[in-house]
Amino acid sequence: MSEKEPLNIIITGVGGQGNVLLSQLVGRVLVRGGFHATIGETYGASQRGGAVMSHLRVSRKMQYGPLIGEGHADVIVGLEPLETLRVIAQYGNPGVAVITNSRPVFPQAVTSGGAKYPTRDEVATTLKDLSRRSWVVDATDIALELGPPILANIVMMGTLVGSGLLPLGAEPFEAELRESLPADRLEMNLEAFRRGIAEVARTA
């Protein structure tokens, strides 16, 4: 891909989904690949069911600040569909590319029975309408095939890498997983990562 300056990526989800870790892994691989990377994170709700968002800014030239301006996201990665919609509404633009997990984490307004949660089709259609490219991926289902549901974040990392939206290929990410993970969890995570890559290739 052509490198945008800076490349603005937002990774979003709900507290407890491994959002922070995902942004850290991606940022770390990029820094090792010679890029400047800045990540701004919302922490307050990171483990208590609140909306969580990481702003990741990537540049060959310089370090950028930790916050992306409204309407200036280039890539949105959503671990949770409703959060993806929330972020695209605030940070999207016609040129944005979006990948979202399909598995809902229902907000209280929905679990307690009052409010409507969008169907998978409604999510897909809305994202298609608002982006230049979009994917809806069953990352949690894939994760549950392989192990715990939190693995969905590594599946989503695979989809992000597989989509070609990052200026780096799969190898450095696999190398990073090998380095950061204990042996007993490595294979499961590598498999999750590869399933993510395959998933966007399949729907390309």
């Binding site: 483990q47 309407g71 919609l85 929330r86 907000p107 929905v110």
Partner: peptide, 21 residues
């Protein structure tokens, strides 16, 4: 774009209260 995005999403984007796990 902004108006369109809000129109398409606002019916769904219910707030998330931070709460006990």
């Amino acid at each position: 774009y902004s108006q369109k995005a809000l129109a398409l999403t606002s019916q769904f984007t219910h707030g998330r209260m931070v709460g006990f796990c």
